[in-house]
């Protein structure tokens, strides 16, 4: 019975994951806007500050990370809202599968569509900020890991504000303080790499934050969804 239960849980996870990917791909504009936002912000910085490469490169880690953080924040409002509005969230909460598992599937799909692309775009935008190509990998890795953590943390806020109309600002106010450690260490990884120092300690801390968020967030988000939904 337990193996069969595990099997059907895995199936529920897989179907929810695929369903969310499919929905994102069909709503092309919704999916693309955080990525375009990310690219736009990064593009504007050299125009507004200075084209001087030596100055620009010192700002590059911060600019990339702040822009990525805001892009993730922008995308989070949509994480549960549509499901809440059309009643599929209700069906998820009334499923015999534990809600945290379905929520985790949604977060994974969200990362694939809104977090991973940021990491993949970062070398291109890094080039614009005069980042040397030697740190491209580290930048992408820090953003991939960091965006996953940001999505996990932000999902709790998104779940709490799901019943609130125009909850975007509220979400930002709730979640931003929790984002600060991720931002410090995420941008720190890139800065250390620029200085040619070993990045593994910072990466390890970033990884630890990801692990803690992964353990707590699906459960907390599911509880928050139940709370917000019953109101």
């Amino acid at each position: 019975m337990s193996s069969e239960g595990g099997h059907s849980w895995a199936r529920a996870f897989r179907y929810t994951f695929v369903r969310d990917l499919r929905l994102r791909i069909r709503h092309g504009s919704e999916w693309g806007s955080p990525l375009i936002f990310f690219a736009l912000i990064v593009t504007l910085f050299p125009l507004a500050t200075t084209p001087d490469r030596t100055v620009l490169v010192t700002f590059a880690p911060g600019i990339l990370w702040v822009a990525a953080l805001l892009a993730v924040l922008l995308s989070l409002d949509a994480l549960f809202r549509e499901d809440h509005d059309d009643g599929t969230l209700e069906q998820m909460l009334l499923s015999p599968v534990p809600a945290w598992l379905l929520v985790l599937a949604k977060m994974c799909a969200h990362w694939v569509m809104a977090g991973l692309p940021l990491a993949l775009m970062s070398p291109m935008l890094g080039l614009m900020l005069a980042l040397p190509s030697s740190v491209f990998w580290v930048t992408a890795l820090s953003l991939a890991l960091g965006s996953a953590t940001l999505i996990l943390i932000g999902a709790i806020g998104a779940a709490l504000t799901v019943g609130v109309r125009r909850g975007g600002l509220l979400l930002a106010l709730m979640v931003l303080p929790l984002y600060i450690p991720v931002l410090i260490f995420g941008a720190g990884v890139v800065r250390l790499a620029l200085d040619g120092i070993d990045v593994t300690p910072y990466l390890a801390i970033l990884g630890a934050m990801f692990a803690a968020a992964l353990a707590l967030s699906p459960w907390a988000s599911a509880a928050a969804l139940r709370l917000a939904h019953s109101g």
């Binding site: 369903r19 929905l23 069909r26 059309d86 009643g87 209700e90």
Partner: peptide, 10 residues
């Protein structure tokens, strides 16, 4: 319930 629980894009 009142909400259909149907995804319109699917």
């Amino acid at each position: 319930g009142h909400l259909s629980g149907v995804k319109e894009a699917l």
